[in-house]
Simulated assay, not measured.
Amino acid sequence: MKFTIEVDTTGNGDYMEYKPFNVAPCKTVNYTFPKAFHARWIRFFTDKETIATTLLNYK
């Protein structure tokens, strides 16, 4: 399944694709954003109907 991260860097609803991930069923993907990463909003999409959880850990 393909998960895609979209980000809005302005806060005006101008989302753009940031990074896609291929994820196998029942698997976890860990990703660390670069230190210079900045976004006002972030959202996640899948290419198929699914039940999934995304978790962001701000440090």
Rank of each mutant, 00 (worst) to 15 (best):
E17G: 12
F45Q: 12
F44N: 02
Y31V: 04
V7F: 08
E6G: 08
G13E: 07
T46W: 08
K48Q: 12
F21P: 01
E17K: 15
T32D: 06
I42C: 03
P25H: 09
F33S: 02
Y18N: 11
T32G: 02
R43D: 02
F37P: 04
T54R: 00
F33C: 09
G13D: 03
M1P: 07
K27G: 05
K59H: 08
T50Q: 10
A36P: 11
T46H: 09
T9R: 14
K27D: 05
V23P: 05
T53A: 00
F33H: 05
P20I: 09
P20D: 08
C26W: 15
D14G: 10
F3Y: 10
F44A: 02
M1Y: 09
T50F: 04
F44E: 00
I51Q: 08
F37R: 07
E17Q: 14
N12H: 15
N30V: 04
T28D: 02
T4H: 09
A39Y: 05
P34V: 07
V29L: 01
E17W: 12
Y58H: 10
L55T: 00
D47Y: 01
Y15Q: 06
F45G: 11
T10Y: 14
Y18H: 11
K59S: 10
K19I: 09
K35C: 02
D14Q: 15
T46S: 13
Y31M: 02
V7Y: 03
K48T: 11
G13I: 05
F33P: 02
G11Y: 04
E49L: 13
A52C: 12
N12A: 12
D14F: 09
A24F: 12
G13Y: 05
A24H: 13
M1G: 08
Y15N: 09
R40Q: 13
K48F: 09
F45A: 11
L56R: 00
K35D: 04
I42A: 06
M16V: 14
A36R: 15
T32S: 10
A52N: 01
K35H: 09
F21L: 03
N22T: 15
C26T: 15
T9D: 11
K59A: 07
F37T: 08
K59C: 04
T9L: 08
V23I: 15
R40S: 12
T28Y: 00
T50M: 04
P20V: 13
F21N: 09
N30E: 04
T4F: 07
H38C: 08
N57P: 00
N30L: 05
A36Q: 14
V23Q: 07
A36G: 12
V29S: 00
Y18V: 12
R40K: 14
R43W: 03
A52D: 00
T4V: 14
K48C: 09
N30R: 13
V7K: 11
P34W: 01
N12K: 15
G11T: 04
E49N: 15
E17I: 13
R40H: 11
D47R: 02
I5G: 06
K27V: 12
K27P: 07
A39S: 10
H38Y: 13
N30S: 11
Y18C: 03
T54A: 01
F45E: 10
A52L: 04
T53I: 00
T50K: 11
T4Q: 15
A52S: 13
T9F: 05
P20F: 13
W41M: 12
D14E: 14
N30H: 11
